[in-house]
C-alpha cells in the first residue's frame, strides 16, 4: 500500500486536494450524459427500467477499470528477484524507442506472458482485443448514427427513402473507420493517447454537458441561450488549449496553480468551458423570449409527466442500485485516495 501511495505520488506530482475534484466531475458527468457511445445504448433499451439500469450497470463495471490498467503495473513494480533486483526494467516510451527496452506501456502483455501458458495466454489476448473492438464498434456505429440520422437526414437530405438512408449509414461506417485510422496516425506522436482524448473531451463534452443539463432541468432556457452557450464554451476551451501551446506559462493561470502538471490542463479546460457555457446560456436565455411551457412537455424535467418504470420491489429499482454504486464508489475512493 505504501508503495502504491509513492507510485501515485510520483505520477501525480502532488497529492490531490479538494478543489481538484470538481474538474473531474464535469468530465465524468459529461461522459455519462452526453457521450453518444453511452447514450445510444440507453436509447436502444427495450424498457424504461432497462434504460435506467444501463448506465448504473456500466458505472459498476467501470469502477473495475483501474484493476486492469493500474494493478498490473503496481504488481510489476513490486516484483523483485531473489537478489533484490527488479524483475522488469521498464523505462519511459521515449527511452524504450532508442534503447529497445520494454516501456511502461508493455506491462500488461509482459505480465500475461509471465503468468499465462499456451491457451490461457490466447484467452487473455482475445479478451483484450474484444474489449478494444467493442469500444471501436460502439464509436463507429455512434458516428454512423449521428451523421446519418441527426445531420444528413435532418439537414442535408430530408426526404430520401429508407433504402437511401441505410446505404448512407453503411458508407458512413466505412468512411468513419478510414477517418479513425487516419486519426490514429495523426496522434501517433502524441505523448499519450489519454492527453488527446481528454483534450477532445474538454472541447466538446464539457460545454455540451452544460447545455444538456440546463436544457433538461431549466424551463427558462431558450434556443439562443443554448446555441451561444455551447459555442462560447467550445471556443473558450479550444482557445485555452491554443494559449497553452503558444505560451506554456498559461497553464498556471488555467489550473490556478504554479505546480500544475500537463494532465491537469484538460480537466481545467473542461471546468472553465462548462462554467462559461452555463454562464452564457443563463444570461442569453434571460435576455431572450421564454418558450411557452406547453411546448416544453416531453423535453424538460418538471413539465413532463414521468411514466412508471414498472419496478415493484426494492431490488428492481434503478435508484437503489445507483445508491449502491455511489456508496461503493466513495468507499473505493476513500480507501485508495
Amino acid at each position: 500500500m505504501e508503495h502504491a501511495r509513492r507510485v501515485q505520488g510520483q505520477s501525480d506530482g502532488r497529492a490531490l486536494d479538494g478543489h481538484r475534484l470538481w474538474p473531474g466531475f464535469v468530465i465524468s458527468f459529461g461522459y455519462w450524459t452526453t457521450d453518444f457511445l453511452v447514450v445510444q445504448r440507453v436509447l436502444s433499451a427495450n424498457s424504461l427500467r432497462s434504460a435506467k439500469m444501463a448506465p448504473v450497470i456500466g458505472a459498476a463495471v467501470k469502477m473495475a477499470v483501474p484493476l486492469i490498467v493500474i494493478l498490473p503495473g503496481l504488481i510489476a513494480l513490486g516484483l523483485h528477484n531473489a537478489d533484490g533486483s527488479m524483475v522488469f526494467h521498464l523505462v519511459p516510451g521515449s527511452v524504450a524507442k532508442a534503447t529497445g527496452q520494454h516501456s511502461y506501456d508493455d506491462v500488461l502483455p509482459l505480465m500475461l506472458i509471465r503468468y499465462c501458458g499456451p491457451g490461457l495466454l490466447g484467452l487473455g489476448i482475445t479478451a483484450l482485443i474484444a474489449g478494444f473492438m467493442s469500444g471501436m464498434a460502439g464509436n463507429i456505429s455512434a458516428f454512423s448514427t449521428v451523421w446519418t440520422h441527426d445531420l444528413y437526414g435532418a439537414f442535408i437530405n430530408k426526404k430520401a427513402s429508407d433504402r437511401h438512408y441505410v446505404a448512407m449509414g453503411r458508407w458512413s461506417t466505412v468512411i468513419g473507420m478510414l477517418v479513425s485510422i487516419a486519426t490514429a496516425y495523426l496522434v501517433m506522436n502524441a505523448a499519450s493517447i489519454m492527453d488527446y482524448v481528454q483534450a477532445l473531451f474538454s472541447f466538446f463534452i464539457a460545454p455540451l454537458f452544460g447545455t444538456v443539463i440546463l436544457g433538461m432541468l431549466w424551463k427558462r432556457a431558450t434556443r439562443a441561450g443554448g446555441f451561444w452557450g455551447l459555442l462560447c464554451g467550445t471556443v473558450a476551451s479550444i482557445g485555452m488549449f491554443v494559449w497553452v501551446r503558444i505560451n506554456a506559462d498559461g497553464l498556471r493561470y488555467i489550473a490556478i496553480s504554479s505546480d500544475a502538471r500537463p494532465m491537469a490542463e484538460n480537466l481545467y479546460h473542461a471546468l472553465w468551458s462548462w462554467l462559461i457555457c452555463v454562464g452564457v446560456t443563463v444570461i442569453v436565455s434571460l435576455m431572450t423570449k421564454p418558450i411557452p411551457t406547453a411546448q416544453l412537455s416531453g423535453l424538460v424535467y418538471g413539465v413532463t409527466p414521468l411514466p412508471s418504470d414498472g419496478a415493484a420491489t426494492l431490488w428492481q429499482k434503478p435508484a437503489f442500485w445507483a445508491v449502491v454504486v455511489i456508496v461503493v464508489f466513495f468507499i473505493l475512493n476513500i480507501v485508495f485516495f
Binding site: 506472458i113 509471465r114 503468468y115 499465462c116 501458458g117 499456451p118 491457451g119 484467452l123
Partner: peptide, 29 residues
C-alpha cells in the same frame, strides 16, 4: 479448448511460466 490444454499440462507438460504449479489454465477452463 482450455480444458483440453489444462489436462494436457496436468499430465507432465507444464508450461515454462511463473506459478505454473497452480495450474491456472485448468482452473480457468
Amino acid at each position: 479448448v482450455l480444458l483440453g490444454q489444462g489436462i494436457f499440462e496436468h499430465f507432465g507438460h507444464a508450461p515454462a511460466t511463473v506459478l505454473a504449479n497452480l495450474q491456472p489454465t485448468l482452473w480457468w477452463a
